[in-house]
Simulated assay, not measured.
Amino acid sequence: MILQYLLGEFEHEVTSTRKLLQAVPEKDLDYKPSEVSWTMGQLAQHIATIYYWYEGALTKDVYDMAADRLERGSPNDIKATLELFERNVEKARAALKSLTEQKLQDNWTMKAGETVLLGPIPRGIVSRGFLFNHIYHHRGELIVYLRATGNKVPGMYGPTYEESKKN
Rank of each mutant, 00 (worst) to 15 (best):
V89R: 05
A44G: 12
T115L: 15
L3H: 03
A112E: 09
Y31D: 02
N76F: 06
E162T: 12
L117R: 15
A48I: 09
A94D: 13
F10K: 00
W108V: 02
R18D: 03
F132I: 08
D64S: 05
W53M: 09
S127Y: 02
W108C: 02
L96T: 01
D64A: 07
G124E: 02
D64G: 06
F10N: 00
L99E: 05
Q105P: 05
T100D: 15
L70M: 07
L84G: 00
N151H: 08
A44R: 00
K103S: 14
K19V: 07
Q45S: 12
I135N: 01
L82E: 08
G155H: 04
L20N: 00
S98G: 11
F130W: 15
G150L: 00
S164P: 04
N107P: 09
R69T: 11
L21V: 07
S164R: 13
G56C: 09
L118P: 01
L96R: 01
D61V: 15
Y5D: 15
T100E: 14
R87I: 10
Y63S: 05
Y145A: 00
E114R: 13
R87A: 06
E90G: 06
E86D: 09
K103N: 10
Y5T: 11
K60E: 15
T49R: 10
K60M: 15
A94F: 06
P120F: 04
S127N: 08
E11W: 12
G73E: 13
T39D: 03
E55N: 11
P159Q: 12
Y52Q: 04
W53C: 04
P75V: 05
F10S: 00
K27I: 11
A80D: 05
I50P: 00
R18A: 05
L21E: 01
K91H: 13
K27G: 08
T160S: 06
K97R: 13
A44K: 00
G119R: 06
P25T: 06
N151Q: 11
L118C: 14
A23M: 09
H138S: 14
K111L: 12
E163K: 07
G155N: 06
K97F: 07
Q42V: 08
A48F: 10
Y5Q: 14
L117T: 08
Y5L: 14
L118Y: 09
I125A: 06
K103L: 10
R72W: 06
Y5S: 10
E9A: 05
L84I: 03
L3G: 01
K60D: 10
Q102V: 15
N167Q: 14
K32A: 02
